[in-house]
Design a protein around this nucleic acid. Structure first.
Length: 480
RNA sequence: CUGGGUGAGGCGCAGUUUGGUAGCGUGCUUGAAUGGGGUUCAAGAGGUCGCAAGUUCGAAUCUUGUCACCCAGACCA
């Protein structure tokens, strides 16, 4: 009977192993994270989805502030002439820029781009604001949305408009800029791993894969449950590329006019897609406690009986007072069983059941979303017990994801090995550095170079694509 | 952009081959019972079949066009 129930229930979501894409779509729609918008390629982020974004924002923003950054806001419209100033940059973004051509009924003299990213706007302002080395560094960030006219879209992973943060900084020296680039990558790594429980590999992008206009691009790459890679965040060192194009100069300590060294870095709502595709299971979402908008849901059981609602509410209030993000679900329109499934679908890490029998015995039944383990705990000291459970869930989910990634990552020595490994996982191999090898891998295996990890301990000496002498360790994978 | 698929009450679908004026499940509303894993029964509300043109006495069904979404590629956070 229980088995039968189980079957009935999972048919709401397409099985993950059967069709990962459909499973993803089912989960995001049924959990109420997003809805498709009336405008092509755009999504509506619903309250539960936005609550997750707000959690991510807070965690990142605190870390940005702690590393000395300040928030600003730049206009959404960028004059075409700005975009044209940096050659690689224009070329990279031209195909996906949306344009404003009219103001009211009048055509504009110069068309305006809806920002696909704000490097050029920041540059234009920095060139006004910087005079002296004493003005440096300038460490600014903005939270905003950007628009890229994508051909194919997918909620959270790729949409025409998406929410993100973009940090833009300028520095006196190339060393300082490089330090900043790596510092922010570390902020991203820490947030991804400690808050979102997403194991990531940090490293440098190849020439082919770097950001248009950057001297060097670094990324954090995470592995989804279908073995594909998702670039979860990038940081760029521009050197003086943009400074030269926008004439951003300062008078140095030696009294010489010099170009500033610039960086930029960003993560987006794509992070939410990464959480879903890394942690989700047959029952829907699983949210790591540190990012979950609701960490524990308290359910009164047999709530029509006298004293149950009051008793359960007291439990919920005590947990809230201890700093746990709690939802007290006293809906009387649905059954307890419905609520169990509802909150499991939504990925709430802990469920606390409080019924008449529990209240009498001074206890509660607690169920973990990650392991489905059910335990009975005394109400006395419940908050402390749950706090440590939440910590354990966070750790367990991260370890699970790490183990999955380890299992699906293979060291490869030659092309056959590479071919096998990128079919459902990451390949770690040596690379000679020739873009021709990347082209071949892309054309034949539809995989790309992801990044060169900071740990460059060689795993061989021959390029796993062409067999020539190689000295770079590179991750290859199919990517979103 | 290329290939494949789908558009029908809020959601999921049968009906299209063989044109005859729209049906099922779920959800929603109301009432009663139930209440520790997606409750049960009863009574209701809700669509003219993505859009446009055409063929026909008559089109969800046939023809042409068009739009949107989904999947797989190519391109990108």
């Amino acid at each position: 009977m229980a088995k039968q129930k189980e079957q009935e229930f999972v048919q709401h979501i397409t099985p993950r192993d059967q069709d990962f894409s459909q499973w993803y779509t089912d989960v995001i729609l049924q959990t109420g994270l997003v809805d498709y918008a009336p405008v092509r390629g755009c999504m509506v982020i619903k309250p539960y989805g936005y609550a997750i974004w707000e959690r991510i924002q807070k965690e990142l923003d605190d870390r940005f502030k702690a590393t000395g950054h300040e928030n600003v806001y730049m206009p959404m419209l960028i004059p075409e002439s700005f975009l044209l100033k940096e050659a690689e940059h224009v070329e990279g973004f031209a195909p996906e820029v949306a344009w404003v051509t009219h103001g009211g009924l009048e055509p504009l003299q110069e068309r305006l781009a809806i920002r696909p990213t704000s490097e050029t706007m920041f540059c234009a302002m920095y060139s006004k604001w910087v005079q002296s080395w004493r003005d440096l560094p300038m460490l600014y960030n903005q939270w905003c949305s950007v628009m890229r006219w994508e051909k194919t879209t997918r909620p959270f992973l790729r949409t025409a408009e998406f929410l993100w943060q973009e940090g833009h900084t300028i520095h006196e020296t190339v060393e300082e800029a490089q330090e900043e680039t790596l510092r922010m990558l570390e902020v991203y790594r820490e947030t991804a791993e400690d808050v979102l429980a997403l194991p990531v590999t940090c490293g440098q992008k190849s020439e082919r894969e770097k950001f248009p206009g950057a001297r060097a691009t670094y990324s954090i790459e995470s592995m989804m449950q279908d073995g594909k890679a998702l670039q979860a965040g990038t940081t760029h060192n521009f050197g003086t590329n943009f400074a030269e194009a926008f004439d951003i100069k300062f008078l140095s300590r030696e009294g010489k006019l010099e170009y500033v060294h610039e960086t930029s870095w960003g993560v987006s709502t794509r992070m939410i897609g990464a959480i879903i595709m890394t942690h989700g299971d047959e029952r829907g979402l699983r949210l790591p406690p540190n990012v979950a908008p609701i960490q524990a849901v308290v359910l009164p059981i047999a709530q029509h009986k006298p004293g149950v609602i009051e008793g359960a509410k007291a439990v919920a209030d005590a947990l809230k007072a201890a700093g746990i993000r709690v939802k007290f679900d006293d809906r009387d329109t649905v059954s307890a069983g419905f609520k169990f499934n509802d909150w499991e679908l939504k990925g709430v890490p802990l469920r606390v059941e409080v019924g008449p029998r529990d209240l009498e015995a001074g206890q509660a039944v607690v169920a973990r979303r990650d392991t489905f383990e059910k335990i009975t705990l005394p109400l006395e000291g419940l908050a402390e017990a749950l706090l440590s459970l939440l910590e354990d869930i966070q750790k367990t989910m991260f370890e699970q994801a790490k183990a999955f990634r380890a299992e699906k990552t293979h060291v490869v020595l030659d092309y056959d090995g590479l071919k096998a490994a990128v079919n459902g996982g990451f390949a770690k191999g040596m690379w000679c550095g020739d873009p021709a090898c990347e082209e071949r891998v892309k054309a034949e295996l539809s995989a790309t170079t992801r990044n060169m990890p900071f740990d460059q301990t060689p795993v061989g000496d021959a390029c796993c694509v062409c067999g020539k002498k190689a000295d770079k360790v590179m991750y290859f994978a199919k990517a979103y």
